[in-house]
Nucleic acid binder design. Structure first.
Lengths: 273, 273
DNA sequence: CGCGCGGTTTGACCTTCATCAAGGCAAGGC
DNA sequence: GCCTTGCCTTGATGAAGGTCAAACCGCGCG
């Protein structure tokens, strides 16, 4: 465990506490499911068969990979990886969303990214995990031993190539997030996030603005949003209200945002002069 | 060019302007030096021969790699890569320090990292560069075409493996920086930076605190420091003064810092409770 | 239907850090 | 030696966003 206990007088955020409590409950299922080795047939109906890591593999190669994978299903709130623990595995997300984060002993939390179907996690690690990973909803994963994976590269070099691509893409996202966290205002952060999220949801092609009135699904809580953008939930809420008041977005309900004027959002996000 | 012009009334930081002006001056040398292909003999006396990328290669393999490399020497201030330009090359740093950064049109700048001898740059890119790279002092580089590099991987798989390691390490640094930028106070940022920099200068082993009274060489200007830590130069200056006043560090001169109480710095950096 | 609960919004106030401005200090030129 | 120049430090002030607190809102439940 990295964070020991809340210091006297400082309240650990409820959501944080929740996930802590659930660690014990949900560790067990991992062990139970270990025997469940997928066949290529399993892969065929996997939501991530044709995205992310697996898309570069032919069926027979996938079968090879599947033999060393362990299928895991976890409920919402489950802790998948923990910062500071030995990094033994990679994971490929098949279904559900995961948040990756780092935390300080006093409860401050920085979400460093979100992983959905097709995403590969565990790259950002030394001998120990440097981030924790938590299921935001019920998730399905393929788990790979890190040492085994090394051997697999000899058999499937295109896999290693793909992994390098994945890592490079993560690096790009990281640089963008650093600019956002280090230099952008609250409004700019929100605007940047909304556009990036739209791109991620494939509402628009990479580098292209979504059409006006595009509807954005926002499965994150305000707390997640705040911890991702380096703000407080109050500031997130206020900033969203400002964007709505100014007619850039509409918020029909808490988990949906309509991008009324993407062009204006882009101007804000990039601090266009 | 990404940033067009300073908006009326907003002053672009001097250093920023400086580098802009130098682009034209220093682009030319790159072309001039293209013909200078290193032999393995060149590599033997390279400062980076036994670090970073090259350390995984035997002499004959290095010779192979050297054949596709272009040696480049650039003066301080030279722009090596520019955000938004087509990403055609990787670079391996042989000598000198480089800053990597992203900028907003109004002049705000976020330094995303520093690269010294043995470091490989250019991984964080899509079809275009997502960061700019600038020589902080006279530098020597080996330049590799990205497309050629792909072919090399077939010949030297251990190189690709190494590159994946490099990328993974960069990811780890990125996550740490996100926590710093998103959630730490000015003092915490300085403390974190000083310890990370000590580790980087190999004043201490990874994960181990430097001994009290370790002397830290700080080749960065206050402006670089501020743009790296997401602060202003004034806040950097004030925070350093506070650390000195509190007896955690000493500042004999502008480019040297003595870590009087590394333990206390670590407590500050990790917000120990 | 009223109630309580968790998450969200809004408001009032306060802290941290940015901004603006002045002064210091070392290095180089004349 | 003195002046300029560039960078750094320090101080005074202000603004963005954090903190604290209250109200709101949808939702499940008795």
């Amino acid at each position: 465990m990295i964070w020991i206990k809340p210091p006297p007088g400082i309240l650990v955020k409820p959501i944080f506490m929740t996930s802590l409590n659930k660690i014990a409950d949900f560790r067990r299922p991992i062990a139970i499911n270990l025997a469940n080795r997928p066949t290529a047939a399993h892969c065929e109906d996997c939501g991530a068969r044709h995205t992310g890591l697996c898309e570069v593999l032919a069926d027979d190669e996938l079968a090879f990979l599947a033999r060393i994978a362990q299928r895991i299903a976890l409920p919402a709130g489950a802790l998948i990886m923990e910062e500071g623990e030995p990094a033994l595995h990679f994971y490929n997300v098949n279904a559900g969303f995961i948040r990756l984060f780092k935390a300080l002993p006093d409860g401050r939390r920085q979400i460093t990214g979100f992983a959905g179907p097709g995403h590969f996690i565990g790259l950002a690690a030394t001998a120990q995990n440097v981030v924790s990973a938590e299921a935001m909803e019920p998730v399905k994963l393929c788990r790979f031993s890190r040492v085994t994976m090394r051997d697999v590269f000899a058999e499937l070099p295109q896999l290693e190539r793909k992994l390098l691509d994945v890592a490079m893409h993560e690096l790009v996202l990281g640089q963008q997030q650093m600019l956002l966290l280090g230099r952008k205002t609250a409004l700019e952060r929100l605007a940047s996030f909304l556009l990036a999220w739209a791109e991620r949801q494939e509402i628009c092609a990479p580098g292209v603005l979504p059409r006006p009135h595009s509807v954005l699904a926002l499965p994150l809580s305000r707390t997640d949003l705040a911890d991702y953008l380096g703000l407080t939930i109050e500031t997130v809420s206020r900033s969203l209200s400002t964007l709505r008041r100014d007619g850039l977005i509409d918020i029909p309900n808490i988990h949906e945002i309509i991008l009324l004027r993407p062009q204006a959002l882009a101007g804000l996000a990039e601090a266009a002069v």
